[in-house]
Design a protein around this nucleic acid. Structure first.
Length: 536
RNA sequence: GCGCCCGUAGCUCAGUUGGAUAGAGCAUCGGACUUCUAAUCCGACGGUCAGUGGUUCAAAUCCACUCGGGCGUACCA
């Protein structure tokens, strides 16, 4: 086998250069390592290609990459498994720091992907203020939006407003009843109506007289309020799409035509159903009610047909925990309409339990008791709220302990990360007073010690972490990364003096290093939508 | 009943397209400020990865079953 027999695909390159490049544990390890060998070895394991041959080939390839000219040694770690270890020359670490410094806010950004992607998230019903699950979806959706953008996707953020249907009627009736009550004529809210102080506030402010008018007015007021809450939370949208705007567009008609043609339409009890021979009967779903009105399901299918015509490569919807069934139905419907399963991706933001004084707060708009996004921000602040949501996987249930979030706020992970940033800024400020500054063009005649190399490695893998966030739709990877980087920096800060290093060159080298750390923390926090204060 | 999510340290959770010695924070206990910010650092304590079986050179990760928790299962949205 010669070198030319072995072709590396782009995917393989991504793996080599990023996805599976790790910082190995243990003292005898190389600078970086990859388990890339194992899957490839198995793939080519026909008895003739040995690990050594692949290793040699990999070495040649890596040496050719300009960035890897500093590769000093590539070897097979003799452990339980065959990991490839890489060692680098000292110059390599300076190059990494230089790369971070020169690219600045763009470090980590890369045109790895292309195409239009839409992210729809929060899309709460216009019947009340935003709650904590909405806050969770907003934090994650917005962070994913930035991560996707950073890696080359052209991303659009959209908010879907369900401004039609029974809920708006109910809302109108609820406000109407509250208005009556306020005028001295005690009137209970309708069955399944909305309760809570905000209904009475609306009743005081709105002028409509009939329930229908009040419903429309209340909805507009509430949507405006949701938008303001989100802005205060640092989340804005490219587009607010109203369900009512689908009227007269023909998308609903189109959905019905295609479904009819493909044999997915059935009639039962005067209603029109989505049905399929592949589905169990209980999975059938109403499209038109027996009174002839359209369901939310039909409207949502039409809405997604509309999305598809906007030529999005991928559409990602982040929905609340009450949408499990709806999610499955949407996927079934979209496939019936002829769209591939990978086109629409539905992520479920699992429920958030609010814990106060050790007890779970039961919530629900119709119960009238819930913690709003505004209250959350008011009590713990934007940065803490976002971080609490971002550091956990979207699919796990989350306990949000208010007392804990406030009580331990001084030892909060988000402050820990921000403090690392502020500390570097403090060093830079002090350096400036001494007429010193980071200089990435400078020739560095200083040899990084082990701790400095370890920090540099951590900076080197930042782009890989960003890639993992995008591939797995999981911002928590970035939270863990930043927390670990901040931790390493805090220790470094305690152990070494930057400005009181032994030589001028050491001061310059360290100054460049800490400034690069500052940059990466800044970039990471920016992706997460969390502020990076210069002093605390 | 069926579907989805989950079960990892005392608590809250990372780690799951199979890969190196399972990690953090909080809590508890003991140390470190004459120093570029102690919102920090160091150390100690803490694990049958819910259980059983299976697949594999290799399982917290995949499969099956069991147990436990949450959510969903509308001609609401």
């Amino acid at each position: 086998m010669t070198e030319d027999d072995f072709e590396w695909s782009d995917d393989d390159k991504v793996k080599i250069l990023g996805a599976t490049l790790n910082i190995p544990p243990g003292a005898q390890a190389g600078d970086l390592s990859t388990n890339f060998l194992t899957p490839i070895a198995r793939e080519y394991d026909n008895g003739r290609v040995t690990e050594e041959i692949i290793l040699n080939d990999l070495k040649k390839k890596l040496m050719k990459e300009a960035k890897w000219e500093y590769l000093k040694k590539i070897w097979l770690f003799k452990g339980k498994q065959g990991y490839i270890h890489l060692n680098f020359t000292q110059e390599f670490w300076w190059e990494v720091i230089k790369e971070v410094g020169k690219r600045g806010k763009d470090y980590g950004k890369d045109k790895l992907f292309s195409g239009k992607v839409q992210m729809e998230f929060v899309s709460a019903n216009p019947t009340g203020p935003l709650n904590v699950v909405n806050a969770r979806a907003a934090a994650v959706g917005d962070a994913l939006y930035r991560a996707f953008s950073a890696l080359g996707y052209e991303v659009t953020k959209e908010y879907y407003v369900n401004d039609e249907g029974r809920q708006v009627e109910l809302l109108g009736q609820s406000v109407w009843a509250a208005k009556k009550t306020l005028s001295g004529e005690e009137t209970p809210p309708p069955q399944d109506g909305y309760r809570g102080d905000y209904i009475f506030e609306l009743a005081r402010e709105l002028e409509g007289e009939k329930p229908e008018e009040l419903g429309r007015e209340a909805m507009e007021r509430i949507v405006a309020g949701q938008r303001t809450s989100l802005e205060r939370y640092g989340v804005t949208y490219d587009n607010w799409f109203y369900q009512s705007s689908l009227e007269g567009t023909g998308y609903i008609k189109k959905v019905m035509e295609v479904l009819e043609k493909e044999g997915y339409i059935g009639k039962k009890g005067g209603a029109v159903w989505f049905t399929s021979p592949h589905l169990a009967e209980e999975d059938d779903r109403v499209l038109y009610r027996s009174d002839g009105s359209e369901t939310y399901y039909l409207a949502d299918l039409a809405y997604h047909v509309y999305k598809h015509e906007q030529r999005f490569k991928t559409v990602i919807d982040i929905l609340g925990p009450d949408h499990h069934a709806h999610s499955a139905r949407m996927q079934a419907g979209m496939q019936a309409l002829g769209y591939g399963p990978e086109w629409l991706e539905i992520l479920i933001a699992q429920q958030v339990n609010i814990v106060r004084a050790g007890e779970r707060v039961k919530m629900g708009k119709r119960v009238g008791e819930f913690i709003t996004l505004d209250e959350l921000v008011e009590e713990v602040g934007v940065d803490v709220a976002k971080y609490f949501f971002l550091e956990r996987g979207l699919s796990s249930h989350l306990n949000f302990d208010f007392e804990l979030a406030k009580k331990t706020s001084m030892e909060n992970p988000v402050y820990y990360i921000q403090y690392a940033h502020a500390r570097v800024c403090s060093i830079i400020r002090e350096a400036k007073a001494q007429k010193l500054a980071p200089d990435y063009g400078a020739k560095i005649g200083y040899t990084f010690n082990d701790d400095e190399v370890a920090l540099t490695k951590r900076l080197l893998i930042y782009p890989k972490e960003l890639l993992l966030v995008v591939l797995g739709r999981q911002p928590q990877v970035l939270c863990a990364y930043l927390h670990s980087l901040a931790g390493m920096f805090h220790k470094y800060y305690t152990d070494y003096r930057v400005l009181q290093a032994d030589t001028v060159e050491a001061v310059q080298g360290r100054l460049n290093l800490v400034d690069a750390i500052r940059q990466v923390i800044y970039n990471g926090l920016e992706i997460l939508g969390i502020s990076a204060p210069e002093s605390m």
